[in-house]
């Protein structure tokens, strides 16, 4: 079983190596129309100098909402796991 898992790990890592060799070189991103729009229009549309913040809280606010929900759920899980043991 361990040998089978080792072979599977080797296959996955070799696929990753193959994918690494055919990636585009670092420093020349391919599709950047959306990001160029954000960089040129973020200041007039949201008034913020920090483009990353304007994406996090304005353009992609739903991502942040889901992320805050995930954090809330994790905190509730941790508090539930340890709150019971303290009372007992």
């Amino acid at each position: 079983m361990r040998r089978f898992a080792l072979v599977a790990l080797m296959i996955v890592v070799s696929f990753l190596f193959f994918g690494m060799t055919i990636m585009h070189p670092i420093g020349k991103p391919i599709l950047q129309d959306m990001d160029n729009y954000f960089i040129t229009h973020a200041q007039e549309e949201t008034g913020a100098n920090n483009v990353v913040t304007s994406i996090v809280f304005d353009y992609r606010g739903f991502d942040t909402l889901g992320e805050a929900t995930v954090l809330f759920a994790a905190v509730s899980g941790v508090a539930m796991l340890f709150g019971r043991r303290i009372r007992a």
Binding site: D63, V78, F82
Partner: peptide, 25 residues
């Protein structure tokens, strides 16, 4: 490009939450 940085910011916070939950388990 700003979009991958914003998504990475989200990913880091989710990673912290998931790691804390795994450690408490």
């Amino acid at each position: 490009l700003p979009t991958p940085q914003a998504l990475t910011l989200t990913s880091i916070v989710i990673g912290v939450a998931v790691t804390a939950l795994m450690l408490s388990f």
